[in-house]
Structures are given as C-alpha cells and as structure tokens.
Write a protein that binds this DNA or RNA. Sequence first.
DNA 1: TCAATTGGCATACGAAGCGTATGTGAGTAG
DNA 2: CTACTCACATACGCTTCGTATGCCAATTGA
Lengths: 202, 202
Amino acid sequence: MHRPRKEMIAETRAKLIAAARRAFGTIGYAEASMDDFTASAGLTRGALYHHFGDKKGLLEAVIAEIDGEMAVRVNEVASRAPTRWQHFVDECTTYIEMALEPEIQRIMFRDGPAVLGDPAQWSNANACVGSMTDHLTALQGEGVVVPSVDPETAARLINGASSQAAQRIANSDDPEATSKIVVAAFKQLLEGLLRKPASQQS
Amino acid sequence: MHRPRKEMIAETRAKLIAAARRAFGTIGYAEASMDDFTASAGLTRGALYHHFGDKKGLLEAVIAEIDGEMAVRVNEVASRAPTRWQHFVDECTTYIEMALEPEIQRIMFRDGPAVLGDPAQWSNANACVGSMTDHLTALQGEGVVVPSVDPETAARLINGASSQAAQRIANSDDPEATSKIVVAAFKQLLEGLLRKPASQQS
DNA sequence: TCAATTGGCATACGAAGCGTATGTGAGTAG
DNA sequence: CTACTCACATACGCTTCGTATGCCAATTGA
C-alpha cells in the first residue's frame, strides 16, 4: 500500500494547520505556544519543524488556506449581481463582512502583516485582491470607472479601507448601527472611481 | 536642588523611549530584546519595568511620541493651502509621505496594531485622525463634502487606504513612479466624498 | 545637620519558549 | 531480506521575559 503513508502525512499537515489556525485566531500568533497547539493536535514541535520549517512557515500555510476560502466566498457572492459595478461593490462589502470575523481579522489583517510583512508581497495569498483588480480593469474597459487609476493600486487602497471598516464595526458598541454608517461611507469613497456622467476632474 | 533629580528621571525615560524607538523601528518590536536596547541606553530592564510596566507600555510611550510628531508635521503642511478641501487633501498626502518612513510604517502601522490592537482605540495617539475628522466636518458644513458620510468613519477609512498606499510605494521597485500612480488613485478615491455639481447618486 | 524615608534603578532568580541536533521506528526499494 | 529513507519525537542549550529583592542617592522634616 502506497496510499496510507501519504494520507497520514497529509493528515498530519492538516492537523497542524488546523490547530495553529485555532490558536492564532484566538490568542494570536505571538501568544500561541508551539508546544501547546502542536500537543492539542496530538503532535509535537518536531512535526511542525519538519513540515513547515518554523513558526512563520506554519503561519504562511494557515494564511494560504484562509485566503483560498475567502476567495471562494467572494466569488460566490460576486456571481450574482445585475451589473458589473454592483458585482464589484458586493465583492468589497463581502470582503468587509469576512474581515469582521475575529479569526480572519486577527490572522489576515493583524498578525499576518506584522510577522510576514506587506500582504501585497505574499506569494501565496492574494486571490481576493486579484479578483478585485480584474473587475476594476474590466470596468475601465466598459467606461464605468475612470481610466486614470491603476486597477491593482485601487484594489489595494480599497483593501486597506475595508480592513479599517471591519475593525471599526467589530469594535463598535452597536455593530448593527455602525455597520450601516461605515458601509455607507465606504461606498461613498468607491464612487470616486466612477466616471461622472457630465463634468470631469476637479 | 530639586531639579537635577527630576531631570535625571525625565532623561532616563527619554533615553529608554529613544532606544526602544530605534530598536522597534529597525528590527521590529518582536525581535527587539529588552536587555539589548536598554543596555544600548546605558540602563537595564529594571528601569524599563519601573517606568513603563512592561514592553507594551514602552511601545505605547513610543507611539504617543511619534503620533505627536506626526500631528505637528501634518499641521505644518496643512496651514498653507488655498481652499479647505485642498488643505484636507494635502493633509492626506502628507500622511502618506510620513507613512513611507520605515520607522513610522513599522511602529505605527505594523507592530503597533499587532501588539496593541485597533489604533482607533489607542487613548494617546489619534491626533492625526482627529485633525482629518475636524476638517471633514467643516467641509460638510461648507457643502463641499456630501453630508451623508460620518466624518470620523471616513477619516478612518482614508487612514487605512493611506497606509496601503505608503506600503505600496515603499515596496516598489521604482518609488518615484509608483508614488505618482498611487497618489493619483488615492486622490480619485477622495473625490468620492465631494458633492457633485449636477447629478447625484448612482 | 542628621536621621528616616522614599523611590529610581540594578541584580538575581525562575519559568517559558524557541531552534537544533539527535534518536527511533515504520514504510519502501532493490 | 536488507538497507535506506523519512516522518516525527525527544533532549539539550540558549535567549527572553517577569518578578522579587537589594542598594544607593536624593529628599524631607526636625
């Protein structure tokens, strides 16, 4: 039998990622003891070092997994929507909603950048921004969005605003009410990208 | 003599903050050994714990200092400018320029949020956002900015976009050229806040 | 001026946590 | 069946952190 072997290895990797994800998402990367969360997966640090090199390597793996999940969720919501612009806006607001989840917020927007540096430089995790960039490019082709902005740049800026939006909602006393206010402001900013019907440039 | 005593204490605090600021700004908060950088100031961890409680407390002090400096610099640039809207835009771009400095980027936008949490909740360091909020409020009063957005929320979102803008420029191969592209996209987003002359809403 | 006291800062100690070097046993190939 | 590979555990030393304790200069009050 060749399979059981490979399957066990894959399972070990998966268990480590799952355990680390739980730890990173709750108590945070810095506070998460490798001894503790590997033990919670029924393993030791030996397995961790073997598969991921070090703690940062494991974080990268966790981030890649989450990024993949986020991309799927964004695309699901994005698929339905009357216009492409609406599609794009939905994508952004979905992004904000996901960033509300403590695990995503902590790992993707807080500890991740602190430990691994600028997310734009992450080799494995940029599916969401890539999707937004594609839509902006298409919208420019359709004449909906002003042609002067660089799509990827705009996507990154929007990404930054989304992160702040999510934090503001999450830390609010009244998330429901705050959400309305924040999303409204966010959409208002997005309108800056739209080509205005009559006049132009200020 | 009552002064020398107080002066020595203040000097000790200042030396600790300066040493920590240097360490945090270069190698980063996590990698900065308290033994090392206190020694570089001719002191020990004893002084650090006495004055700041712990490493995080010292980081807070460093952040408060930097925030104060940033507020001064923003206000300097802000003072001259023909219109209030231009004033506001200049404020934002100055903010981006400051975020380009490695020390500020690392401490204020990377390690700070990772260690202390959402910057919006920092009690001592919010001068810059406060200033932007004030200007947005005034601009709404003048009818320049759409009345529907919450000023502080907008300021926070812009802040997030600024941070991303700075990172994008800083990590670029050609910062000069990238800067133009990024700032252009940033300003475009800001225009979403402007009340349009003729039509409205899309 | 001199004792008592405060408090600023250093030293000493214990507890984790991390990374590496090494060991071991199960699977695999020739 | 033997030798090798490799997934993973164990063991060790180093660094770092937090606290408990000690010391000495500066201040205070008589």
